[in-house]
Write a protein that binds this DNA or RNA. Structure first.
Lengths: 220, 220
DNA sequence: GAAGTAAACTACACTCATTAGTTTACTTTT
DNA sequence: AAAAGTAAACTAATGAGTGTAGTTTACTTC
């Protein structure tokens, strides 16, 4: 049976393009089951027995692949980190042929789409559920992510250097822009209190966020 | 012994201004202990034995006051709701003698101070920890809060009516403003990934949020 | 293609710790 | 004396992790 997870590893597995051993399949089943259960019920409320049952695998097999529950959690969390680290892969240098507004819209839209990805939300939910009462750990993990400059920051700096924008504090302005977006596109989804956004809603939020940002920082 | 909780009931108890029975004291000890433990470790990770120990009360006494653990959680959560429902108590009609900017700053500052209150953060943390995997319940609770108009909304509407601001969608604009503030003042604190804000930081965020908002919506 | 082998899987019974909730026999407060 | 508190032992369930004896799979080797 040819099998490749649509979720983890799919780049790797597909390019490997080979049969998976039964062991690999089982392992993947365990990971998928754990991922799903952790997201749905939380780490605490998910027993190893439950995971084994969901994965249709004996409990012993779960323990053959992951020595402890903690090991399973840590494994999944690392997957999250590598997954969410993919920064928006867009050219971030100022282009005189293109309006700042248009470029900004592209960047914002990319960010919104990241937040709209079901996996992204589900995985951060799982991570936060785990870390909510382990703030030191959370901080350590986040620091790894925080230190890198975002696509926003790079572009804003570039546009400032070309005198298109006038931003005294680029880091602060980036946060403002991100807050405008996250407040509407990330947090409500994260708390599952709002239905997924339609394309029109996304577009509206993107244009309005850009409008407000430019109203403040456009160099006129 | 005269006793009044600095946390729950203090308005009530102080005005009652009378001796508390031992039973009432014990009950309060239990509530305080549960509140603290739930916030620190989460509901799941806090056992009734632990609460009894923290409250320096026998386990049976805990059960005399609260029939089940669930009952204790529900009780505390209701306290949260009534506590956080206190809206900013500021006059929200447009005053021609005062600049919109100044008034907005006052409102924003009040909002920031609410978020900066340790209790507010701790209690929402507890609530979210509990509700993160009970979205339907969360939604139901939030709906009770969401339906009421915020102080922001009332003032913005009033200022629009006096042609001081030009806001096509007041609800949306309110969200934008709130997102600007929450992104810096609430969420980082909520996740305990940022130290509490200094007064300077608060002031900076307040002025910058107002500046961006007015750059977009000021009627000039 | 048949037989052999090591690794991985299975079912299941087990230990040990924790936790929600109860019961009992006795003491303190009001 | 009634109401409320106490310590301590108890039940019943759950859940992490282990040990074991037997089975399946994949991959040789003949």
């Amino acid at each position: 049976m040819y099998y490749f997870s649509l979720f983890f590893f799919y780049g790797v597995i597909v390019s490997k393009n080979t049969k998976l051993t039964r062991s690999e399949i089982k392992r993947q089943d365990i990971i998928d089951a754990a991922c799903q259960a952790f997201q749905e019920f939380g780490v605490q409320a998910t027993s190893m027995d439950k995971i084994a049952e969901l994965a249709q695998v004996s409990k012993r097999t779960v323990y053959n692949h992951f020595a402890t529950k903690q090991a399973l959690v840590v494994y999944l969390l690392n997957e999250i980190r590598t997954r969410t680290l993919v920064d928006v892969d867009i050219d971030t240098t100022y282009d005189p042929l293109r309006s700042v507004e248009s470029k900004l819209l592209t960047l914002i839209t990319a960010e919104i789409n990241l937040y709209s990805c079901g996996h992204y939300i589900d995985l951060t939910r799982m991570a936060f559920g785990h870390f909510l009462y382990h703030p030191e750990e959370l901080k350590r993990e986040l620091d790894k992510v925080m230190t890198q400059e975002t696509a926003f920051q790079r572009y804003l700096r570039s546009a400032c250097e070309h005198k298109q924008l006038n931003i005294p504090d680029i880091k602060f302005a980036t946060d403002q822009l991100q807050n405008l977006i996250k407040g509407s596109c990330f947090w409500p989804q994260f708390l599952k209190i709002e239905a997924p956004l339609t394309d029109e809603q996304k577009h509206h939020i993107a244009t309005e966020s850009a409008a407000m940002f430019l109203a403040r920082y456009n160099n006129k």
